[in-house]
C-alpha cells in the first residue's frame, strides 16, 4: 500500500513538471511578446524594443529560459509578472479565494440540483417531472456558458435588479455566475444519476426487497439511492475540474476577480511567469483531486481497491 502511494506521488510529480514544460513550450511559441501590449510599436524604435525584450529576458533561447525558470522554481521562486513586475505567488494567492468560492458554490449547486433532479426523474420515470428534469439537464449542457451567463445577467441583474452584475465581494455576486456554472454541472449529473438509479432499481436485490414488503420509500432512499450515487461520486472530481475551468469565462462575464481571468489574460498577453504559475497550481490541484477521488472511491465501495485500480489503469487517476 505504501509503495503504491509513493509510486503515485512520484508519477504525479513527473506529470506536474511535464505539464509545466509543455505549457512553457506552447507559450514560447506564441506569437508576439508582452512588450507589444505595453507600447505603441509604431512609434517605438526597434532598438528600444530590443533592449526591453532583453531586460525581460524574453530574447533568450528556449532551453535557457526553461533552465532559468526551473532553477528559480526549485528555490521556491515563481518569478514576477512580465507585465507588472509583481511577484507571481502573492498574485495567485490573492486571486485564488474568489475562484475557489465560485467553483465550490457552483459544484454544490450542481450536486444538489443534479442529484435531486436525477433521483426524482428516475422515480417518476416518464412523468412530467422526468421530462422537466431531463429538459433542464439537456439545456444545461447544450448552451455555451458565456451565453447563458449573459442571459441570466440581463434578466436577474439588469431587468429585475435582484443580483449585482459584477464584482466578487459577498454571496450576492456569487449568485449568477455560480448558477450558470452549477446548472451546466447539474445537466451532466442528472443524466448520470438518472441512468444509474434506473439500473439499480432493476437489480434483483431491489426486487427482492420490494417483495419482502419494504415500503417503496425505504427501498428507494435506503437502498437504491446509496448504490446509485457511486457513479455520481466518481465524477465529482471531473466536475470540480470543469467548474474550475468554467470560472475562466464566468470571471470575465461577471467581472469577478480570480485566477481564471488572470490566466486567460496572461495567455493573451504572453505573460509567461503568470501562466506558468497558474498552470503549476492547476496541475497540482488536478493531481490531488484525483488522488482524493480514488481514495474516496475505494472507501465508498470497498470492492474497489486502490491497489487494484492502480494496477488496472496504470497508476493514476480515473
Amino acid at each position: 500500500m505504501v509503495r503504491v502511494v509513493i509510486g503515485r506521488i512520484v508519477s504525479s510529480l513527473l506529470v506536474v513538471v511535464s505539464s509545466s514544460v509543455l505549457v512553457f513550450v506552447i507559450m514560447y511559441l506564441l506569437p508576439g511578446d508582452p512588450i507589444d501590449s505595453m507600447v505603441n510599436v509604431a512609434a517605438t524604435p526597434p532598438e528600444v524594443i530590443a533592449s526591453l525584450r532583453h531586460q525581460l529576458g524574453v530574447d533568450k533561447p528556449l532551453p535557457q529560459q526553461l533552465a532559468d525558470y526551473f532553477g528559480k522554481l526549485l528555490r521556491g521562486d515563481l518569478g514576477t509578472s512580465l507585465l507588472t513586475s509583481e511577484p507571481v505567488l502573492p498574485k495567485i494567492a490573492a486571486q485564488l479565494p474568489p475562484t475557489l468560492e465560485l467553483a465550490a458554490v457552483s459544484l454544490a449547486i450542481a450536486l444538489i440540483v443534479g442529484l435531486a433532479l436525477g433521483v426524482l426523474s428516475a422515480i417518476h420515470r416518464n412523468g412530467p417531472i422526468d421530462w422537466i428534469a431531463r429538459f433542464v439537464g439537456l439545456l444545461g449542457i447544450s448552451m455555451p456558458n458565456f451565453w447563458s451567463g449573459i442571459l441570466l445577467l440581463l434578466v436577474f441583474s439588469i431587468r429585475l435588479g435582484w443580483f449585482p452584475a459584477m464584482g466578487s465581494d459577498g454571496w450576492r455576486t456569487l449568485a449568477l455566475p455560480s448558477l450558470t456554472l452549477g446548472l451546466i454541472g447539474a445537466g451532466f449529473l442528472v443524466r448520470i444519476v438518472r441512468n444509474s438509479m434506473l439500473e439499480v432499481m432493476s437489480e434483483p436485490y431491489i426486487v427482492m426487497l420490494r417483495a419482502k414488503g419494504l415500503t417503496e420509500r425505504a427501498v428507494m432512499y435506503r437502498h437504491a439511492l446509496r448504490n446509485a450515487l457511486i457513479p455520481a461520486i466518481t465524477v465529482i472530481g471531473l466536475l470540480a475540474g470543469d467548474m474550475l475551468a468554467g470560472t475562466v469565462v464566468m470571471e470575465t462575464v461577471f467581472a469577478r476577480q480570480g485566477i481564471g481571468r488572470m490566466i486567460s489574460d496572461a495567455i493573451l498577453s504572453k505573460d509567461m511567469p503568470v501562466v506558468q504559475g497558474v498552470i503549476l497550481f492547476s496541475a497540482v490541484v488536478y493531481v490531488v483531486i484525483n488522488l482524493l477521488v480514488d481514495l474516496s472511491y475505494s472507501w465508498i465501495d470497498p470492492r474497489v481497491r486502490l491497489r487494484h485500480r492502480t494496477a488496472d489503469t496504470g497508476g493514476a487517476i480515473r
Binding site: S18, S19, A245, V248, L268, I279, A283, V287, T313, G315
Partner: peptide, 19 residues
C-alpha cells in the same frame, strides 16, 4: 498514459486558448 495525464492537468479551455 503519463503523457495523457499531462494533457489532462491543463484545463481544456486554457489549452485550447493557448494553442
Amino acid at each position: 498514459m503519463r503523457a495523457v495525464d499531462v494533457l489532462m492537468t491543463i484545463p481544456g479551455v486554457l489549452l485550447a486558448l493557448a494553442v
